[in-house]
Design a protein around this nucleic acid. Structure first.
Lengths: 199, 199
DNA sequence: GCCGGGGGTTACTCGTGGTAGGTTACTGTG
DNA sequence: CACAGTAACCTACCACGAGTAACCCCCGGC
């Protein structure tokens, strides 16, 4: 902290790599959130950071590289919020309920950020995040599942559950009048019966 | 047919708007499938069509406009295949089974096309296609649903089902060893119990 | 024969991702 | 204290792609 403060005082705005990197990721996140990936310009980021482009390219290699770095934090926040909520429950139903609710809450409170996560399927970053999410759900399910279930089938179910919640989130954005909790309940009621086999 | 053939003979490659339009949509579809939206260049499309860019812009207004036009056909094919399959069944279970299977089949046989449909959530076209798909499922469900169910809840369920199948399709691409029919069965078994309330 | 308009082209602008090569400020070493 | 060496940074550019203004040319109808 105090070390950072001292470092920030470098004359001429000159700053160590690590610090500049963090600053750019932060400003980049803002910019991507405002404009989306395609319309965000590296020139503008450079302007906002009071730096020139080669600095950014030195640190991140490419626009996609910067994008990946910016998604890191977002994806982590999402994953931990869901995991924490789900693992607070003990029985399968309460875990699904809590996890789903946490996800929908995240989706409302960070709508733009969440949309950003899934912008551009071609971005390898987005695909990775998607997989990570599904894996997390898979882990959570595995913790409750008996041994005799086909692991492949469990995997498919985890993916389906993940995507189903995504779909619900999209619907939710178009219908803000329906309370989030109601939506979470509906989704649980839809998915839970089919999930009982895995518990 | 014969009228078209006569028209194609126009000297200097000069051709009526409607014909040029169809040709460009066809070539555009190819190009987008090859390169994806972002990396497909209008200059190249123009080259391939043996035409210059202003012609394209005259007909479609913008790159997104062309993209929309190209998605039209794809989305239509997808929707009709699912609808036909689903409506062939009589009871809810067989309809879900048939519809889901049709979707997964489409996803395998037209993988690139399908990915294209969902590339770029910001593309209004993609969002529209997504909504249309969900609406189709909703229609199919409504045909079997009793009167007492909350229409909102039904809508949410339709979206969830749609997205769940999307997720399964993605998993499928990463695991080609699992037969499509098995996957379809698993998905039905996962979703059907929760859907019985709506029948 | 002339003229109106549909179909097409040339030749640009402007913005943006990306880079080569030079410059400045700080740091450790004799 | 001079003097590398290096980390941070900048100027000035390139290539390329979306989109456009202004012009052309050929055909059918009068």
């Amino acid at each position: 902290m105090e070390a950072l403060a001292r470092i920030e005082e470098f004359r001429h705005g000159r700053v160590p790599r690590a610090v500049r990197r963090r600053q750019l990721v932060e400003l980049g996140e803002e910019l991507f959130l405002e404009r989306g990936f395609a319309k965000a310009s590296m020139d503008e980021l450079a302007r906002r950071a009071g730096v020139t482009k080669p600095v950014i390219y030195e640190l991140f290699g490419s626009k996609e590289g910067l994008f990946n770095a910016c998604l890191e934090g977002l994806a982590l926040r999402l994953a931990t919020q869901i995991a924490d909520a789900a693992r607070a429950g003990t029985d399968p139903e309460s875990r699904l309920r809590a996890g789903g609710l946490a996800f929908l809450r995240f989706a409302t409170e960070n709508r733009v950020a969440y949309e950003l996560l899934y912008e551009g399927r071609f971005s390898e970053a987005a695909a990775k995040v998607r997989r990570r999410q599904a894996t997390l759900i898979l882990e959570l399910m595995r913790e409750m599942a008996p041994d005799h279930v086909d692991p492949r089938e469990l995997e498919v179910a985890a993916n389906a559950v993940n995507s189903a919640y995504e779909g619900v989130a999209h619907w939710m954005w178009d219908h803000p009048d329906i309370p989030l909790e109601t939506l979470a309940d509906w989704t649980v009621e839809l998915l839970l019966p089919g999930l009982r086999r895995f518990t």
